[in-house]
Design a protein around this nucleic acid. Structure first.
Lengths: 199, 199
DNA sequence: TGATTTAAGTGACCGAGGTCAGTGAAATAA
DNA sequence: TTATTTCACTGACCTCGGTCACTTAAATCA
């Protein structure tokens, strides 16, 4: 059972989250201060920290929520495709989503936090239970069963490299100010890497 | 001709640089404040900013200096190797240097700054005139002349992907807290990618 | 019901990176 | 030599993310 107090606290938390994300979208993560968020919400600065450990945490929570998107994305993928093409199709869909829905600002925050924040557990960006990684593992296992991959590379390495290809292209997208088509760059890069893994 | 004043200024600058790097090495970049650096040097805080635009700039300058290392590294590479193996040999040497000389702390700073700092020019991490990129371009051109690469990928894309492979592995090294052998991870990843580019 | 405990919320405070009007001695102009 | 300009250097000051002893009202206990 939830008490009146817990209900109020959850409302405050949600209000902070919504306000913060709205302000981030309008002015960019770096240009929004905690004080701006809390005064907009009509609470004190300290209240922010009863609900979130750091400024980053708001973005990380949203990012985590975004990740459920891939379950829907996976459903759209043609089951008759070969496993390598399934991964490419998933990445195509994912990159479209990152560029058009999530956006560079949130992704930059996530990719910076992964390097900076002393990890309290395994960081989400490389967390093996991450939805997208479980999908990729599934496709790769299909590929192994069909015998399309070289046998001198162990499965964990195949998996790690495919995941790394994703971060590689996202990172390069983030450090380029313009003229970087994430979707096509990711496609070519991952396709080439997968070709290198094939028999 | 250099004036007395300019000489003094350069001395101050050099002293700030040396002190900062010594403190960074001892306590880590994030745990050293500008005030600590300037009081150790016996100058005011403002002086730091007459010589450097941001705290990052000290590290970026050092990183730039490190890059000359690759000229020596390239000389050691066996000229009879095929171009793909030359790139692998260069990366092996480079990763050894990053892990044992440059260190995670400086690299983390560089990789964060690349995402954060609004680029005044093209950022050094992707600057085409960067020493290591010119070396790679040279080897890849050798490879093209020998006809070892697929012809459906244009040269600029081959070049971009090989560079990206480097950042991919360095980034993954930076977000892992342990159990990440940069040298061997880089080797396998780049080798696989290069295999995917071959005829 | 009244006494006690709990925890959401408060805001003064801290040290950080970075700014800028002002200073004074060196460089240059007269 | 003297007047003027230049610029390395100063340090009080700004805002920031984050902390913590404290307040207060709701939840629980007796």
């Amino acid at each position: 059972m939830i008490t009146e107090r817990q209900k109020k606290a959850l409302e405050t938390r949600q209000k902070l989250l919504d306000t913060a994300l709205k302000l981030f979208a309008k002015r960019g993560f770096e240009h929004v201060s905690i004080s701006q968020i809390t005064t907009t919400c009509g609470v004190s600065k300290g209240t922010f920290y009863t609900h979130f450990a750091t400024k980053y945490d708001i973005v990380l929570e949203k990012f985590h929520e975004f990740d459920t998107h891939y379950i829907d994305a996976a459903k759209k993928i043609d089951a008759t495709l070969n496993p390598a093409d399934k991964i490419l199709a998933l990445y195509d869909e994912q990159m479209h989503y990152l560029v058009n829905v999530v956006g560079k600002d949130i992704m930059r925050t996530v990719y910076t936090a992964a390097m900076t924040n002393q990890v309290e557990h395994v960081h989400y960006l490389i967390h093996p239970q991450r939805t997208i990684f479980e999908l990729i593992r599934m496709y790769l296992q299909e590929g192994v069963e069909q015998g399309i991959f070289r046998e001198d590379i162990v499965f964990e390495n195949i998996e790690k490299m495919v995941q790394r290809a994703m971060r590689a292209n996202v990172y390069d997208w983030l450090i380029h100010t313009e003229d970087f088509d994430l979707k096509s760059e990711m496609h070519l890069f991952t396709k080439t890497l997968l070709d290198g893994m094939r028999k």
